[in-house]
Structures are given as structure tokens and as C-alpha cells.
Amino acid sequence: MGDHEVEALLRVADSCLVLAQRLTGWCGHAPALEEDIALANVALDVLGQARGLLTRAGELEAAGRDEDALAYLRDAPDFRNLLLVEQPNGDFAHTMLRQFLFDAWAVELWPELASSTDPVIAGIAGKAAKEAAYHLRHSAGWVERLGDGTDESHRRMLASLEDLWPYAGEAFLDDDVDRAAAEAGLAPLPSSLLAGWRARVEAVLTESTLPVPPDPWWQRGGRQGRHTEQLTRLLAEMQVVHRAYPGARW
């Protein structure tokens, strides 16, 4: 197994891990008790996906790193997550739109990964596909409710769209790592997921009375380790306990 395959796995695993960390920031702060639990459920699902893939990446890398070593002992330039998921939570509309853009990608990705040539990845993806389908139902529901809601909720959704849209397309840009992983049958080519994602996103935005923005120059680099300043702060909080007390258990 080459480095390219491990890299390709980390791109998905890290995106899930960083999103899970962002979502846990809502714990105890969501607009309603029911939504608080819903967001925690999503966070736990996405964290579980990250754990499975990180563990597998560590096994394939064969350098003795387990999921904890990969999650807690790498610095920002070693992370391979999408820039989208490291963006701050903002208000509830912002979080939900970020989630929707991610979920619309995830529901395209997981069914493809379920037929990965790596049986462990295929197993993780089969479960994740079911989880992602529900996450999308939840986040799309909120995008529609807020977009087609009050003047205030529409305004906030519109502001979130302007803010997040430039980060939405990174998931579909291929590079040599992706091509090697696709060639090995490990993961689909990112660009192959774009048409499905676009159709779904455009349908929901239209239903939400929100405009479909033109394609900008997509912000990129996260999947190659070049991140916004947001990730460093997120990791500082996520990793502090493990770094202060290596190997601590309770």
C-alpha cells in the first residue's frame, strides 16, 4: 500500500474528525433541546466514521500510529481535511449550511467507498452511507426552513451562503493522490462526485428560495495540508488534553 492511498484516506478521515470537533461546540448551545441532541448524534456519527478510517490509515501506513496518534499528535500542516469543515460554527444557519454542503458530498462519497477494494474501508462506508443519508435529511430540512423562513432567517442563510460557497468545491478537485487512489480502486475520483452533489445542492437551494451562486475560484489546499488559521485553534483545543497527559485514560 503506497503513501498515496494513506493520504487519500486521511483526506476523508480528517474531514470527518474536524467536522465532529466543530459540531461538539454546539453541545448545550443549540436553539432547542431536541436540536442539541440531534447535533450531538451527528457529531458522534461523524466521529465514528473518522475513527474507523484513521485506524485503517494507521494500519496501512504501518508506522505504528493508531487513531489517537493520528488525531492528537499531528499538527495543522499534517491534516488533510477540507477547508469547509474547519470554518467556524458562526450562527446556527452557518453551521447548518456548512453541514448541508458536507452531507451532500458525503451521500455521494460513502456509497462509492462501500465498493472500495479495501474491505475494511468498504465496511465502514456501508454504515456511514446510512448515517449520511439521515444527516442530509436533517441539514437540508434546516436549510429549507431557514432559507424560506422569516426575513431574518433568510438574511442569515444568505450571508452564510456567501461566506461558505467558495469552500464548497474543494471536495471535487482531483490531484495525483486522488488519481492514484482511484486507480487502485480504493476511493472514487473526487470529480466524479460533482454532478450528483451539484444537482442535490441546487435543488435544495432553489426550494429554500436561495440563489445558486456562480462557481467562484474554489478555495483549496486543505487536502494538501495548507489550511486557514481556523484549524490551528481548533486543534489546540482538541489536542490539549492528550498532549498534556499522553496516554491518559479514564
Partner: peptide, 20 residues
């Protein structure tokens, strides 16, 4: 019981709160 603004949200919330 639970709070929700519409039937779809009620079903989603029921799933999240009562069938975890």
C-alpha cells in the same frame, strides 16, 4: 413528547431523541 415547528421536524426530533 417534544417541540418542533412542523411535522417533518417532529419526526426527525423523535428519531433523534427517542430512538438513539
Amino acid at each position: 413528547s417534544l417541540h418542533a415547528v412542523d411535522a417533518r421536524m417532529a419526526l426527525d426530533n423523535a428519531r433523534d431523541v427517542y430512538t438513539r
